[in-house]
Computed example of a mutant assay.
Amino acid sequence: MTIEAATRTAGDDVSRRLLESSATLSYDPDAEIDWEAPLPDDEYGLNPEWSTLYGTPLWDRMSQDQRVALTRYEVCSIMNTGIWFEMILQQMILRDQYMNNPADPQFQFALTEIADECRHSIMFARICEKLDAPKFSPNRAIVELARLLKSTAGGEVAYGGTLVAEEVLDVMQRDWMRGENVLDIVRTSSKIHVLEESRHMKFARQEVREHMDGIGSLRRAGSATLIAAVAVVIVQALVHPGVYRAAGLDTREALAAAKANEHRKSMLRNACAGLMQFLSEARLLTGPAVSLYRRANMI
């Protein structure tokens, strides 16, 4: 058996196991989340440690109500970014699987993942509605660049970009789902997302391995840099500047405090540790890519 055939067989095996897992262990947000339950006034939107201002002098001066409000707006901003990128992801996967053999397990799990992502996006949208948060969107230039990405990216770039968003959010949500002072609606949605996204991450890693098999050095260098650029945009888009104004803070002061926040930088680097290890193993952690990741405090 050739290396290419062995890699494809391994991919089919992974996809079969993921399909079986999806059939036996998935959640319905309508049934799992109590959408009508009132929101306790003193519970955060995410663990305070994950707030962009936690550990700064500004956080120390904020009232408890402002801290609660900020974390609720921050989690909604992160969910808005998640919805935005999940829509990009679905289109990239559909293009990558276009006209592939429907009998292949990889094709079937790709469609299963798209169905999951649709449910996740609706779940996040309903949470933002429940928390009465404004819409937090990337700026126009980023939106248009993303439109180009979703129309052209494929292979290791599509699935590598997928991993960036999923891995970082996975680490955050594993903390949120255990946060005793975090809103139950966020804790439960985090549990659902963590469990189902773990399958998506396994699938994305296998797809990256398959697409990287035997590629040339020029393509590898280009893909590594493009994935890193996508990562920087995603991480910087997670928390929209509008969250500070919505929480009653001075936007300029809050942005400066968040930018200088060493605690935030440390949390982000820890969240990216697993992602960086995989990218290194996949030969996608090149010099220019590392420079971009370091600039975004991801490494």
Rank of each mutant, 00 (worst) to 15 (best):
A110E: 08
E49S: 15
E43Y: 05
M201V: 07
S223E: 13
G216K: 14
G214M: 14
Y54S: 05
S217Q: 08
W35H: 09
V233F: 02
V290Q: 09
D184M: 04
Q66I: 15
I234E: 00
K259W: 14
V290A: 13
S198V: 06
I122K: 12
Y293M: 13
N181I: 04
R178H: 03
G214F: 09
A258S: 10
R294P: 02
K135I: 11
K150E: 14
M62S: 05
G45K: 04
E281T: 07
P57Q: 06
S22F: 15
L18N: 01
D175F: 07
D60G: 12
E167S: 14
L39Q: 06
S223A: 14
R252Y: 03
M201K: 09
V157L: 01
Q64C: 01
D170A: 08
M92R: 12
T251R: 06
R269V: 08
S190T: 07
A258F: 02
P105R: 13
S266I: 01
E43G: 00
L25R: 15
G160C: 08
T112S: 11
S190M: 06
Y98H: 15
S26Y: 01
M79T: 04
R119N: 10
T56A: 10
S223D: 12
T2W: 04
A237F: 00
T112M: 13
D30T: 07
V186T: 13
P105L: 04
K150C: 01
S291V: 04
E86P: 00
E197L: 07
R199V: 04
M177F: 15
D34R: 14
D250N: 12
V164S: 02
P138G: 10
R283S: 15
I192E: 04
E74K: 03
I114L: 07
D34K: 06
M79V: 01
G45A: 05
P102E: 12
L218W: 05
V208T: 03
L111H: 15
L131C: 07
D116E: 15
K259H: 12
D41T: 11
V168A: 02
G216I: 06
A282E: 05
A125K: 05
A273S: 14
H193T: 11
L238M: 11
E180R: 13
M172Y: 14
P134M: 09
R187E: 06
V164D: 00
L25K: 10
L46V: 11
D96G: 05
R140E: 10
E4W: 11
A10H: 13
V232H: 02
R205C: 15
